[in-house]
Each structure stands twice: as structure tokens, then as C-alpha cells.
Design a protein around this nucleic acid. Sequence first.
RNA 1: GGCCGGGUGACAGAGUGGUUAUGUGGAGGACUGCAAAUCCUUUUACGCUGGUUCGAUUCCGGUCCCGGCCUCCA
Length: 460
Amino acid sequence: MTLYFYNSLSRRKELFIPQDESCIKLYVCGPTVYDRAHLGNARSAVVFDQLFRLLRIYYPAVHYARNITDVDDKINEASLTRGLPIEAITQETTAWYQQDMTRLNALPPTVEPRATAHISEMIDMIQTLIVKGHAYEAEGHVLFRVVSFPEYGKLSGRSQDDVLAGARVEVAPFKEDPSDFVLWKPSESPMPGWESPWGFGRPGWHIECSAMGQKHLGFPLDIHCGGHDLQFPHHENEIAQGECATGKTCARYWLHNGMLTVDGQKMSKSLGNFITMEEAFSMAPGEVIRYVLLSGHYRQDLDWNESHILQARQAMDRFYQVKGLAEAQGVSFDIEPEADIEVNPVLEALEDDLNTPKAFAILHQLANSLYKDFSIPVFLQFYQGAQTLGLLSMSSGEWFQGSLDETGLCMADVEQAILDRAQAKCDKDYGQADRIRLDLLEKGIVLEDHKDGTTTWKKS
RNA sequence: GGCCGGGUGACAGAGUGGUUAUGUGGAGGACUGCAAAUCCUUUUACGCUGGUUCGAUUCCGGUCCCGGCCUCCA
């Protein structure tokens, strides 16, 4: 029971020691709901879902919050472009996101707070910051006074001078200091807004996570997660405002996932190489996508390409074949959570900073062993490992046969074809037998003959 | 310019101061009427360069490339 995580705050791998073993506090930065989720969003969600699943094995309760950002300038833009009310956009996009995450076997968080439901908490926090001298009002804006927080930059490893040196943003004239950031800004119709002590306005980007993290979990959080691109400025600013407002550490462990590239290029709006989950699901089933997303270490960049998808699909086929062996043996899939923890090498790999590639290697070793000599204890290790990775959620029948829709066949067609082929084989009419098999293959059905004379089928 | 992360065999991708990672692909074989699945054998490694060491892909220095963040971004 020794979990190690690479902590962005210290820039090294650390033993994980929770504040309270009876309840772990996990916060993950969720999506801004203005457009369909893309693979980058999915990677973050899947990687930290995997963390959630692991933590649940070791601790009795894990409180996992993942926010929905439903107030943002990009949402306002989408609303204008599409001519739809803001709520219509955010509700639709949130529903898509949740469906997509379900298809990836990402468990729902304990709580999924929406920014617009926490405006008063944000206003309270901003007021506290003003009272304490960490924020000031200027021309309807409220800004965080960065010089008031000497530790600013501790997460991203930059000094305040560095921040200025690299500043590419045009500095608003009302800022006391160029690195100050917005907590609250004025709004005019049709922009969404709320009444506040500083007039009608809306929150800046960073304050929501601090307010919601504090409300739903409470500082200090045990683990705060998000994409590496959020490390600066988003998380740096969260630390600044959160710690100044509450006087408590924001989070004790910060985990950041690496970026996703597509055919070697970073996925980005400007390059136009965003892959939405809708597109991704048209290329591969959810578990295959999940396998791809976990096939590299979470902190490294990961490339999305055809070859990756193919390899993941083959690996999943092999794993499901093993599950099929277990089903044939009548193995019960009820795993007692604590049964094999101390000796499960898959979990050992995951304990070491979520080493999913190593975990997959071990799953393959276990699969090899199971093919040669099936044993229930080894299978249970294999299965528990796969489940902790969020895989093998269906039966092998569902996996290999699933829906026949795209083949244009029905179950009876396939069964009749198998019978016809068996007759042809009986008659030694191998030409006819092969024609039947090739005909099915063209329609996406592969036949497998077994030693006992039976024939089974699966989708290719 | 500042900060950070990488460079491993055909490809993907872990790891280690001295022993096969793992998967895919290629080659050969077993099984099969032919396939599929499975099994066996096999092929090419650790960017370059100094140093430490009995010994370095693994530690230290230098060097050359690549990528990310510094602007909305998972």
C-alpha cells in the first residue's frame, strides 16, 4: 500500500500520504462546455479516472470533484455564432461530455459542480481577497495583486520576473502590475452576468476552481489534477487566490498529464487538427480509445495515429479472448477488492506514479500465462488489473459479436452460414466451404474452427 | 529569451549500474482441408562525447537534436 506520485510542486516523485486516510480529496479540472469534447479532454478524464479507480481500492472513501466550466467567453461566442441561448449550449455540451466519458468507461465523479451554480461562493472569495489586501477593484474589474503573494510561481517554477519577461499579453492600463490577473470583470447584455459589489459582471477564469474546490472538498485538497497546459497560469493562479483567501494550502499533490499530438503535431484549434470524441468513436470502440490513452505514461506526450489504434484493438481482442476462456470455465467475476492487492503485479505497477504502460506489459504476461495454463487465481489478478484500468467491462460475446448492424446480417444468417459450411466440409466440398467463409469475411465476420468441431464467429 | 520534459531495437513504449521488459510488425515453424485463434523459434536497442566505476543504456559533465508552456487550451 505504497502509492507514489510525481508532484509538480516539488518536481519529483513522492510517497503519497493523505491527510485523512478515511477520505481522500481529489479535484480534477474538467471541461469548458462550448463544443464537443476532444481527445485531449478525454485523455485527462481517463488518466485521472484511472487514478480515482486506484485510490478507491486503497481508501474507503474518495471524494472526487470534476468541475464543469459553464461560464466563459468561448461559450458566449458559440452562443452568438449558433444563435442559441447560453444554457442551451452548455446543457447540450455537458450532456455530450458525460455520454462520451461513459463510453470511455470513465466513472462519474462524486460531484460535478457547475461554475454558474457557485457565483456567490466566488464573490465571497473575491471579497475576502480584497479585504485581505490581495485584490483590488479597478474600472469595474477586480484583479488579484500578484506581488502580495511572495510564493507566486512556485508551481510552474517561474519567478515573477520571468512572468513579466515572457508576457505576450497586452497589459490593461488599469492593472497595478502587468502580471495581475482578473478575478471579476464587467458584463453587458447579452453577455451573462450577475450582480456583485462591483456591479454587473462575471467571474474570471481561475476563481471558479478555487471556490468549488473549497466548497465541495475543502482545502487543502489531497490531489489536484489537470492538463499540463493548465499548470501556468491557471493552476498557479488558483494557488495564489485560494491560499491567500483561505490561509490554507490549496493542494498537497499536483498531477499534470502530458499533451496529445496527432500524427506528431500538437492537437490545437489553430492547427485545425482537433479530434472530437464523436470522430474518435467512429474510429474505434471506447475501450480501444481508452487503451490508446493509457498506453503511454500520463506525464508524457502521446501521439494519436492509426497504428496506435490498431495495436490497441489487437491488444483488447487478446484480453477479451482471455476473458472468454474464463467465461468458458464458468469463473465468477466477483472480485473481492482486498483479495489480491498485496500480490497483484498490475496494481504494483500502477502504484508507481500510474505506470500504465508497465501495467499493460504485465497484463500481457498474465494473458500469455493464462493461454498456456489457465488458472483462476492468475485470471483474477489479470481481471482485477484490467478492471482497475477500466477495461474488460463487457462480456467477450458482446465484445466480439456486439451489434451486427454494420454487417447487414442478422444472427440467423450467420448461424445458417456456419451450418452450410459445416455441411460443405462434411461433403469435402472445400471450395464451397471457403466461399462461405470468404463471403462472411467480406461482411466483417471471421470464423474460428475449434478442436471439438464447433465453429464460432466474431466481428473482424 | 525564461521555465520544463524528451531522445531506447522496423514501430509503439517501460525499465535497470552487470541478468528476456511488453505489444505490434517482419522471417521461419507447429496446429488447421485452407484459414482464424493459439503455441514455438528468430531479427535489428539504448542521440553524440568525455568522466566516475571492475563494469553504464542506467550516475555526473559537455554537446547535438526534438517537444511543451510562457496567449484560450486537457
